[in-house]
């Protein structure tokens, strides 16, 4: 499997070249274009992960679809182009061991060795961070494609790091994530426009996005006329 990411970072798409009988599982609706030698199968489970309907329902809580599309090459050199829903970036992350916790909307695709599941990150966090209570947990071995709104940047964190709510794309499971105030005083935090922020602790990789969908929605929402 060879992955090329095109047109980064504003409107990225991933071009995936698959060898015979290789396959990749994608978010529903992610496919932009593909070679004719690909077999498409819509399923609630992804191979290597087991699961089925129950996992599909859990996935729905995490903001993903019940169904997944699995593309399998019937011949060598088949190409599949996929893209995210929002205008933004795509990055490739290799999981060797452990897991990657992905914000619901950011999971785009994963290779066969990756199991995707929903994981609960706490109701309190969801209430106060503006992030979802459920995240997608990718574990196993293989490639994962993440999408974002705006550009993605990756950080290798050692010890503490702070990210504004709504800007998290994914983080490795060795990082602990909690909610805190941006500045010393609570009022200062809100007046500064930062409100509550996400604090990371530990060692591991963190992916952030340059823009966040709720802010963008709030900004353009009031300019949209009701039909």
């Amino acid at each position: 499997m060879q992955i090329d990411i095109l047109a980064r970072p504003a409107a990225a798409a991933a071009s995936i070249r698959l060898a015979d009988s290789e396959s990749i599982t994608c978010e529903v609706g992610a496919m932009i274009a593909m070679s004719s030698g690909l077999h498409v199968e819509t399923t609630t489970r992804n191979r290597g992960g087991g699961g089925g309907i129950l996992k599909g329902i859990k996935r729905m809580f995490a903001g993903e679809s019940l169904f997944l599309n699995r593309f399998t090459a019937q011949a060598d050199g088949q190409q599949l182009v996929i893209g995210p829903r929002m205008m933004g970036d795509v990055v490739q992350h290799h999981i060797a061991r452990g897991a990657l916790i992905v914000q619901g909307q950011s999971w785009l695709a994963s290779a066969d060795g990756i199991d995707i599941d929903a994981t609960f990150q706490g109701l309190g966090k969801a209430l106060f961070s503006g992030e979802s209570a459920f995240w997608v947990k990718c574990s196993g071995q293989g490639e994962v494609l993440l999408s974002s709104f705006g550009a993605i940047y990756a950080l290798d964190i050692d010890d503490d790091y702070v990210v504004d709510t709504g800007h998290i794309v994914a983080f490795e499971d060795t990082l602990q994530f909690s909610i805190g105030k941006a500045s010393q005083s609570l009022i200062g935090s809100f007046l500064g426009g930062e409100g509550l922020v996400c604090k990371f602790r530990g060692q591991g990789r963190l992916y952030c996005q340059s823009h966040n969908p709720p802010s963008f929605g709030n900004m353009i929402g009031r300019h949209l006329r009701a039909r």
């Binding site: 897991a99 060795t174 602990q176 530990g202 060692q203």
Partner: peptide, 25 residues
């Protein structure tokens, strides 16, 4: 020793200079 990670149940064992960390949950 540290307890953390995304699940909050991952144990980290570090050397005092933080050069080496061994972890597992």
């Amino acid at each position: 020793l540290e307890l953390g990670g995304a699940s909050g149940r991952m144990w980290f064992c570090r050397t005092p200079d933080r050069q080496l960390t061994i972890y597992s949950e």
